[in-house]
């Protein structure tokens, strides 16, 4: 697969940009958190594209964001349970 670049994304509409980024991100996140991969990917796609592109180049950055997302997701799930 060719690496995603900012110019490739800029050529596509926003919806496609997020889809392209998601398709690339999902397998990377699935390797770290198989059960939460879909939700984590969805959370990360809300981040700015330039930051997402940086994450492909920096595994440390990706891992850090993923762990952050997991923490937020878990807190969100606890909150949902307690409000029910």
């Amino acid at each position: 697969q060719e690496p995603l670049t900012a110019s490739m994304l800029a050529a596509a509409p926003l919806k496609e940009q997020k889809q392209l980024l998601g398709e690339r991100l999902y397998p990377l996140i699935q390797a770290l958190h198989p059960t939460l991969a879909g939700k984590i990917t969805g959370m990360l796609l809300e981040i700015d594209n330039s930051e997402l592109l940086h994450m492909f180049e920096s595994p440390e950055s990706l891992h850090s964001k993923v762990e952050e997302a997991v923490a937020v997701l878990q807190a969100h799930q606890v909150k949902e349970l307690t409000t029910k």
Binding site: L14, K15, K18, Q19, G22, E23, L25, Y26, P27, G38, K39, I40, T41, G42, M43, L45, E46, L73, H76, K79, E80, T83
Partner: peptide, 26 residues
């Protein structure tokens, strides 16, 4: 930010159009 939302986060599934676009301000 205004409480819990059962539809958040918008889950991404490979091959399926992501539904989270409405949360993003272009």
């Amino acid at each position: 930010s205004n409480g819990t939302n059962v539809n958040w986060p918008p889950e991404f599934c490979p091959g399926v159009p992501w539904k989270g676009l409405q949360n993003i301000d272009p």
